[in-house]
Design a protein around this nucleic acid. Sequence first.
DNA 1: TATTTTAACTAATGATATTAGTTAAATCAA
DNA 2: TTGATTTAACTAATATCATTAGTTAAAATA
Lengths: 195, 195
Amino acid sequence: MSPRPKIGLDLTTILEAAGVLADQLGIQEVTLANLAKNLGIRPPSLYNHFDGLPGLRKKLAIYGIDKLYSRMADAAIGVSGTEAVLAVSQAYVNFAREHPGIYEATLLAPDPEDVDVQQAGAKIVDLSVRILQAYRLEGESALHAVRGLRSILHGFSSLEQRGGFKMALDLDESLVIIIKAFLAGIAGDSPTTTD
Amino acid sequence: MSPRPKIGLDLTTILEAAGVLADQLGIQEVTLANLAKNLGIRPPSLYNHFDGLPGLRKKLAIYGIDKLYSRMADAAIGVSGTEAVLAVSQAYVNFAREHPGIYEATLLAPDPEDVDVQQAGAKIVDLSVRILQAYRLEGESALHAVRGLRSILHGFSSLEQRGGFKMALDLDESLVIIIKAFLAGIAGDSPTTTD
DNA sequence: TATTTTAACTAATGATATTAGTTAAATCAA
DNA sequence: TTGATTTAACTAATATCATTAGTTAAAATA
């Protein structure tokens, strides 16, 4: 009958297609039906590559976290102190802007406690710890500061994405002001590096 | 045949049931099928009360925003300055903890630009503006500060809900430290009220 | 009391994820 | 090179949804 070409899909290709789908139509449109259609195969064939929709969601989450981490790590090269935090923050927010669906998937793993998901996320936490080390925070203060930075970055990105900021007011400017205020507050105005 | 008792449901009852469902099983389990089962009616009957699943999501979002606003406004009574911001912040986070599903619904309206949704959200923005007025920010600074506070509160709540904070470190303490740092940063350490 | 509105219903449709079992292409070992 | 195995596609079938259309009886109203 019809030829069954055995396309030979690999997981990366599938995840990229899922990412495009997420960014273009939103995460809720990343269905096995839509994904299969875009790939030119039938929905059940996808089960050869991952364990159903939850499996896809998990893999897409890790895929997205890794991508986000790359962008942050890139931005952190060759900078330090406030400059580094600002660069990494802008990279974070820009990633969420360019890849709203993938960013959303990042926080949508079926089980956030999953070891693989945790491991991917840990790299981002570690990076945050490192760029905040310039502020010489003592003991637990550094950990609280990491939580604060992540809260700001995720909250800002999420609210921007959902149209939460209605005022006619430059968004990038807001981010810089918010980050600077937070850093000034935790450092008592004494970062350890030259700015 | 079987009696058709005409229960006489009103929208509030339905939204409360939907809220319980959201908090107990997660927002993705707030289906017309589940909701109808909990209410003792058949799914199509729900269409007499709202316009399908998108209609329910919109009404649940507004319902949640109103509830959240009430809690924040309550917390703001009789306090000012840093104390007010902290009280409102804790109310916000506690609401998200107690009602994770309703909180999630708050940001899940099908159309965030919808007038009714905007109107509900505006009350929260206004409240934020008022409690930050103690810091005497000039011009646009106040608006940037509101964005910062909202980013922190939403980011913190969302990340806590999704298991984003793994460290063995007191969460309430983190929130207080983060808010205080942010306020110190935007105020240059000069809130206008007695603390 | 008669009419209208309301809130439930049944029946049917289409989209979805998922499972089971099948088949042929690709890979690999002898 | 050939035979066996693995892999990646498939068809068919099922269950769960949301949704629409059309119906009916209870409740409200005139």
